[in-house]
């Protein structure tokens, strides 16, 4: 092979090392170079290892478009888009629901007041999403390939958020009946369930403050102490931004847990001037 390399240098050729998969691909495709069988091949220097991407991809894309048009048409032939009775502002349906992609927000309305569930939390999550490229301290690892091992924190945190979002959607869409009560799939959704008898309680105000101070403190300090390396790679600013966003995200399942297990309505209920802020 070394001998071959020398030879090809003289002729202005380069050696391209290919995996078997690449070779399978190149073999079947019209490329300008003279590919020889094997995983190490000789090609002329300029066009060397390029394939005619434009030509091939337009054909494939056209085909994909045809296939999806066909699928959607068949789907549309057999399933009608919903249309209920004419809108009637006087008649609130018992099973009032948002479209499925917003049902996660509606699901959160059960656990948080509307200003939190509908405005503050989604805005913060959106800001968090926009900040992703700047929070991630590692600018090189894993580009262009799927890997968990090389970026475990990034993948787990994002995966957790994504999964939580879709879990909320699935619960909201399939497990909620009239009055947003929880229904198992085998329960009849046309009958209104009785409201649960147990009274919901608030934390005592001192308890509420204590909870938040402890929670935020734990979120900010613990990882710093336990995962020293993690703190070092992130740096101070990134660390605090990341941990705040993470703490807010984690608050959603925590609140759901507290509600279902301990019937907690609000962790903290604050009276500021004439306004009540419930968390």
């Amino acid at each position: 092979m070394a001998e071959l390399k020398e030879k090809s240098k003289e002729k202005g050729e380069v050696i391209v090392r290919m995996s078997e998969k690449e070779w399978e691909y190149v073999k079947n495709i019209n490329v300008k170079g003279d590919y020889k069988e094997g995983f190490e091949t000789l090609t002329p220097k300029e066009q060397d290892y390029t394939v005619k991407h434009l030509r091939d991809s337009v054909g494939i894309e056209f085909l994909a478009g045809l296939i999806f048009t066909f699928i959607i048409m068949v789907w549309s032939l057999f399933m009608d888009a919903p249309l209920k009775e004419l809108a009637n502002p006087a008649d609130t349906p018992i099973d009032e629901r948002a479209p499925w992609y917003f049902i996660g927000l509606q699901e959160m309305l059960i656990f948080f007041d509307p200003w939190l569930a509908g405005v503050i939390i989604p805005s913060i999550l959106l800001v968090g999403l926009i900040l992703v490229p700047f929070i991630d301290p590692n600018k090189e690892t894993g580009i262009g390939r799927y890997t968990f091992r090389d970026r475990p924190v990034a993948v787990s945190v994002f995966g957790f958020g994504f999964a939580m979002w879709y879990t909320l959607i699935i619960i909201g869409q399939f497990f909620r009946g009239p009055a947003r009560m929880f229904y198992w799939p085998w329960e009849d959704k046309t009958v209104l369930k009785e409201m649960p008898v147990s009274e919901m309680v608030n934390f005592h105000i001192a308890g509420g403050f204590a909870f938040f101070i402890l929670y935020i403190g734990a979120c900010m300090v613990l990882p710093q102490v336990i995962f020293k390396n993690f703190y070092k790679t992130l740096g101070v600013v990134r660390y605090y931004i990341f941990m705040s966003l993470f703490a807010i995200m984690l608050l959603i399942p925590i609140k759901i847990f507290l509600r279902y297990v301990f019937d907690v309505k609000y962790i903290l209920s604050l009276q500021i001037f004439n306004t009540t802020l419930n968390f």
Binding site: V16, E22, Y25, Y49, T50, K52, H53, L54, S57, V58
Partner: peptide, 11 residues
């Protein structure tokens, strides 16, 4: 689309 593309990129 780029007119030509490297084999690695294409893969």
């Amino acid at each position: 689309h780029p007119y030509n593309m490297s084999v690695g990129g294409r893969r």
